[in-house]
Nucleic acid binder design. Sequence first.
DNA 1: AAAAGTGTCAACCGCCGGTGC
DNA 2: AGCACCGGCGGTTGACACTTT
Length: 226
Amino acid sequence: MATLSTAKMTEKSEHKKGLWTVEEDRILMDYIGVHGKGKWNRISKVTGLKRCGKSCRLRWINYLSPGVKRGDFSEEENDLIIRLHNLLGNRWSLIAGRVPGRTDNQVKNHWNTHLSKKLGIKKGKNKDSASSQILSKEFKQSCSTARDLNFTISHNYDGGGVSQKEITGEGETQNAVDFKDAQELITQSDDDYENSSWFFQSDLKLQTPNVMEFPDESLDFFWHDL
DNA sequence: AAAAGTGTCAACCGCCGGTGC
DNA sequence: AGCACCGGCGGTTGACACTTT
């Protein structure tokens, strides 16, 4: 929480670092109350607050924003995060966008400190789990909007009863219908995630990169009943 | 009681993409 | 086209709290 004790000024920058004080929070809140969000780099000029724009933005998003939920994660939230992480990898902002009241930083911290342990996942440079790393640029360029999408989700199940599932969509209505199938795959997960037939990507070869290329809003129908 | 070890999480950093000039 | 600026992202760090010895 905010404290006056350890904050230091750097040699190079006039911007303060470290934990935010109550007074700094108040200044930032006042500024946003008057000017609204955005233009973060102007805050220090307008208010005299010795914080860089990035720091202000982060403080607002992760702490001061009224929509931010505090406290422990519920079982439902854990469940949702695990499912989404399995699907999206370390796309924390995308995951957080589907967990009401939680920020990407909260979700990321919670995953790293609680859920990854719970699931027995070792932290490391696992590019496989962070499947966003292997996105195709061509795909990115070709999928600028949800309506443009012709997506394919492939699953290789050994034990899940589905050896190969391909889902394609052409236009919004068709997508909504076809994604019910995808949703079924997702909801096949049971309570024991460690034993879940769809959890380990190395076994599954769940090819999420395509899915992850969807614009955030285009996923609404996909997550609808998740 | 105190030192050492461990866990948690707020905040920082570097990078990247979008935008405007 | 090239540059600067800004906002956003994921990875990482470090201060503090808590637990163990």
